[in-house]
Design a protein around this nucleic acid. Structure first.
Length: 268
DNA sequence: GATGACCTGTGA
DNA sequence: TCACAGGTCATC
């Protein structure tokens, strides 16, 4: 997916488009898409007559709080949506965020894996060609670490100290820090001049400072530009591409199980 | 902590 | 036809 920046764009679309509208009908044609025991029947019992009251996000997980039914003050369940590798949120036929670079942007009806119709006639859908996204109710939000936008220096230090994994694998581990994916981590490490294979706990004070800075900078700058694929590095990632900083031919490896681009000259 | 599986579309 | 894809999970 959709990493944290695309999830945030989707959250904003939900916030401006889906709140305060009464759910009338649930569409869950793909039971495989529902996770942790959730069924279409349970969704149909849970959502109609409720309104979405807030659109939150933790890492890449989208969270919609729901109202009580009628005058009831007791809130309903939390609806969680994950975009997987190719998911997009659609509210009233408007698509959230930038087109996905590696995923199809066509709108094939069968790709609409989950949705609701509102009482006012509008709709909200999750479209996902590859079916790696997910819908669940009342997720355990604490299975995720702190959101990358809220990352503190102390937390970063703590997770680095506890791991001997390649720093790239650690940064992509959602239970440690939530939201960074393959592209963002490549961009972050490139900006911080750190080799992706470096054992996490081997980073010294200065490197940790650069890493923290690079995470904040990457989120801010790529967020403004329009997504994970708009980075200085991530916009050139292809075989034989040159480092945008010093011109060296980029190295292409598998680190943490994912294709990884880095500069052999300035990342060490 | 590393590996492979999951599912399906796209482009070479 | 094949390799590859920005994620996550179970398994060794």
């Amino acid at each position: 997916m959709p990493e944290i920046l695309e999830a945030e764009a989707a959250r904003q679309a939900l916030e401006s488009g889906a709140l305060g509208r009464r759910v009338e009908t649930v569409h869950a044609p793909d039971a495989w898409f529902l996770k942790r025991g959730l069924t279409p029947e349970a969704l149909t019992a849970a959502l109609p007559a409720r309104k979405f009251t807030s659109a939150r996000r933790r890492g890449k997980l989208l969270l919609l709080d729901t109202s009580g039914v009628g005058r009831s003050r007791t809130p309903g369940p939390v609806l969680a949506m994950h975009l997987g590798m190719s998911g997009r949120v659609i509210v009233d036929d408007a698509e959230a965020g930038d087109p996905l670079v590696y995923a199809s942007n066509r709108d094939v009806p069968e790709w609409r894996r989950f949705g609701v119709t509102f009482a006012d006639g509008g709709e909200m859908w999750l479209r996902d060609p590859r079916r790696l996204g997910a819908v669940e109710l009342d997720p355990d939000e604490d299975r995720l670490g702190p959101d990358a936008f809220e990352l503190s220096r102390a937390h970063l230090d703590a997770v680095l100290d506890r791991s001997g994994a390649p720093v790239k694998a650690l940064l992509m581990n959602q239970s440690k820090i939530a939201g960074l994916g393959n592209l963002l981590v490549d961009e972050v490490l490139w900006r911080a001049s750190i080799d992706p294979t470096r054992p996490a706990r081997s980073l010294d004070r200065d490197e940790r400072k650069r890493l923290k800075r690079a995470i904040a900078d990457s989120l801010r700058i790529l967020g403004r530009r329009g997504g994970s694929h708009t980075g200085d590095l991530t916009s050139v990632r292809e075989p034989d591409a040159a480092c945008p900083r010093d011109g060296a031919i980029l190295q292409r490896r598998t680190v943490g199980g994912r294709t990884t681009f880095s500069c052999p000259d300035h990342q060490c």
